[in-house]
């Protein structure tokens, strides 16, 4: 199976649980064969998808306003962006909308956008209604899911949904390589008979 590396960028306000979601995703099935990354800001995880393996290279960003200007460096070249908000903080949902806008304007053209409402376990102090968030996500054709990093709810599903939206590499690309062969020409054909 071919491994495809997919850069995934994590955006969202500070404190909404961006890294908790990813840590949960990466740690749940700890594979000792894969040497761990040095820290939780950059994590990788490989999941099967169809006949491919998707290796997610997950780039976390700092959510504080002062680091906002660095975000383009992180989301450039991303196959997907996960924008996280905290369902108990309305502000974080407003920030999310700003990120969506910025991605549309400056992000990669075909980026898959996923919206994750985290801290779903704290439903009793919810500030962002699920319906509103879902409608917003549909309006921008984004993936929507509510998660709980703490209880490991929907974390796996979030990334599965992303995987499914990544267009598969076409097999037929292979035969195009035929024309690549600049290096070695066929051996000199000598018409000899013996």
């Amino acid at each position: 199976m071919a491994i495809r590396e997919l850069k995934v960028c994590l955006l969202g306000d500070t404190g909404v649980g961006k890294s908790s979601i990813v840590c949960r995703f990466v740690q749940d099935h700890f594979d000792h064969n894969i040497s761990p990354t040095i820290g939780a800001s950059f994590l990788t995880k490989t999941v099967p998808c169809g006949n491919e393996l998707h290796k997610f290279l997950i780039w976390d960003t700092a959510g504080q306003e002062r680091f906002h200007s660095l975000a383009p460096m992180y989301y450039r070249g991303s196959a997907a962006a996960v924008i996280v908000y905290d369902i108990t903080k309305l502000d974080s949902f407003q920030t999310l909308k700003k990120w969506v806008k910025e991605l549309k304007e400056h992000g990669p053209e075909d980026i898959v956008v996923a919206i994750a409402g985290n801290k779903n376990d704290l439903g009793d102090i919810r500030e962002v209604p699920m319906k509103e968030a879902k409608e917003f996500a549909e309006s921008i054709a984004a993936i929507f899911i509510e998660t709980s990093a703490r209880n490991a709810v929907n974390v796996e599903e979030l990334f599965q949904k992303i995987s499914k939206q990544i267009p598969p590499l076409e097999k037929s690309e292979v035969d195009s390589n035929e024309s690549f062969k600049l290096t070695r020409q066929p051996a000199p054909t000598t018409r000899r008979c013996c």
């Binding site: 961006k18 800001s41 504080q64």
Partner: peptide
């Protein structure tokens, strides 16, 4: 504790 970019970059 695992620190993400929110803590690491500063």
């Amino acid at each position: 504790r695992m620190y993400g970019a929110d803590d690491f970059l500063p």
